[in-house]
Design a protein around this nucleic acid. Structure first.
Lengths: 229, 229
DNA sequence: CTCATATCTTACCCGCGGGTAATATATTTG
DNA sequence: CAAATATATTACCCGCGGGTAAGATATGAG
C-alpha cells in the first residue's frame, strides 16, 4: 500500500480544527471507514487505521460513535438508504414487468458502484451483532421480494417467459451484487456502461435473435483488457 | 448456534484413534475447516473451533499444517481443482460459443454448490499472504479469460449478439459466483435445478420471444418461499 | 515385549486491537 | 476574560487467538 499516494480522497478537512460540527465529522468518519472496510474488510481495519486516515487518534472516534460496530452499522444504514431511494423511483415507474426488472437492474447496478451501496452487499454481515444483523437481513429480503414480484408480474402480463421467479431473481441479484466486488471508481468501466449493459444482457440474454443482421446492441468498444478481482 | 444439533456431518471419525493415516486426517481437517469458514468466515473461525469440531485440541492441528493460513490455502487449492476439472470438460465439448457459455454456466454453477468450490469465491482472499493471494488471483483471472473467450467466439460465429464480452462475462460470473453466498445443501433448491435454470436464463434472457404461446421453459414449480442470505 | 516414533495434550507466551481513564487544549458562552 | 464544555491526546487495561514448549500416551517395527 503506497503511502498517502493515490489513496482515495481522505476526509481530513472535517477534523482540521476543533470547530464544533459533529454532524460533518460523523460523516467524515463513515466515509473513510467505508473506504477502508472495502479495501481491507471490517475485521482487518483497526480503529487506529480509521483514525489515522483522518489524522486523529483512536479515542477521538469515541466522541462520535459508541463502538466500532456502530460505525459499521452507519455504513449499512447509509447504503440501504441509497438503495431504498432508487427502488422507490421504480415503484411508480409503470410499464410491464419486464420493463420494471430492467429499470431495477439499471438503478440497482448504479448503487453498487457507490461506496456505501457496495458496503451493503460486500461487507460480511456476520460481523454485525444479532440485532443489527436481523435488520440488515430483513432489508435484503425486502429487496429480493421486490425483484421477485416484478418478475412474477412480467410472467403474468406476458412480457417475461415463464420460469421460477425465485431462481431468476437470485440470478439477476447475484450478477448485480457481484459488481461491488470488482468495480473500481477509477477503472476503465463507467457505472453508466455497466448498468446499461447489465440491464440489457440480463433481460434480453446473450443469444442473437434469428434473422438479426448484426445490429450492435451496446457500445461498440472492443474489450480492453483489465483484471477482475 | 445450537449445540452439536444438526451441524453438518463432522469428520471426527478420522481422528477416532491414533492410527497413522496423515492423508485422511489432513482431509478431515480441510473439510471441517471449509465448513466453518463458510459458516463463520475465516477470521471468526479460531483454530480451537476447528479442533473442537474434530474432538481434538488446537496443537494437534500443527501436525498436519504449519499454520492457519495453510489450511485456508488447502481449501482454495481443493476448490480450484474442482473448478479446473469441470472447465476441462467444456474445452473439448465442441459446439457454438453460445453452447459453450451455456455449458460453462451449468458446470460452474454446480461447483458453486460444493463446499470447496464455494470457498474459492466466498472466502475473503484478503486473508491470504501475498504469495497465495497472487496464485488465487491468477487463477480467477484465468477463469474470467476462459469465459470471455467463449463469448467472443459466440459473437464471431453469430450465436451471440454483439456486446462487450468483458461486461457480459462479469455479469454471468457474478450471477454464478453469488450462488455460493445463498446456496445451502439442505435448502429447497437442488443444485441441478439452479444450474439448469441459470444456464437457460443467463443465455436466453427473461424476455418472452414474440409469438411464443406459453411454453413453460423450466420446471413448473410455483416458487416456494424461502429466505436468501 | 521393548524401544523408537508419531500422535496428541496441558500449559503457556505474546502481540494485536477494542475499549477506557485521566488529562490537556481548544471553543464557545456569558 | 473567565468559566464551562466540547474536543482530542497519552497511557493504559485486558481478552482473544495464533503459535510453541514440554511432556504424556498410544502405535508399530523389530
Amino acid at each position: 500500500m503506497a503511502r498517502g499516494a493515490v489513496v482515495p480522497q481522505p476526509h481530513r478537512k472535517a477534523f482540521a480544527n476543533r470547530r464544533r460540527d459533529p454532524a460533518s465529522k460523523r460523516e467524515a468518519v463513515l466515509k473513510t471507514a467505508a473506504q477502508l472496510f472495502l479495501e481491507k474488510s471490517y475485521r482487518r481495519t483497526s480503529l487506529n487505521d480509521v483514525a489515522g486516515r483522518l489524522n486523529i487518534t483512536k479515542p477521538a472516534l469515541y466522541h462520535y460513535f459508541h463502538n466500532k460496530e456502530e460505525i459499521l452499522i452507519g455504513c449499512y444504514r447509509w447504503g440501504t438508504a441509497l438503495i431504498e431511494k432508487s427502488l422507490r423511483e421504480i415503484a411508480d415507474h409503470g410499464g410491464t414487468g419486464l420493463e420494471k426488472v430492467e429499470a431495477f437492474i439499471y438503478s440497482y447496478a448504479n448503487v453498487m458502484t457507490v461506496n456505501f451501496g457496495r458496503c451493503v452487499m460486500r461487507l460480511d454481515d456476520g460481523d454485525l451483532s444479532s440485532n443489527a444483523l436481523a435488520e440488515v437481513r430483513a432489508y435484503k429480503r425486502k429487496i429480493d421480494r421486490r425483484l421477485r414480484s416484478f418478475i412474477q408480474e412480467g410472467i403474468e402480463d406476458g412480457s417475461i417467459t415463464p420460469c421460477d421467479p425465485k431462481i431468476a431473481a437470485f440470478s439477476i441479484a447475484g450478477a448485480v451484487n457481484w459488481i461491488c466486488r470488482w468495480y473500481e471508481p477509477d477503472g476503465p468501466l463507467s457505472a453508466e456502461e455497466i448498468a446499461s449493459q447489465f440491464a440489457r444482457t440480463l433481460t434480453q440474454g446473450l443469444v442473437r435473435p434469428v434473422g438479426n443482421k448484426l445490429r450492435p446492441a451496446g457500445a461498440g468498444k472492443a474489450a480492453r483488457h483489465a483484471s477482475a478481482s
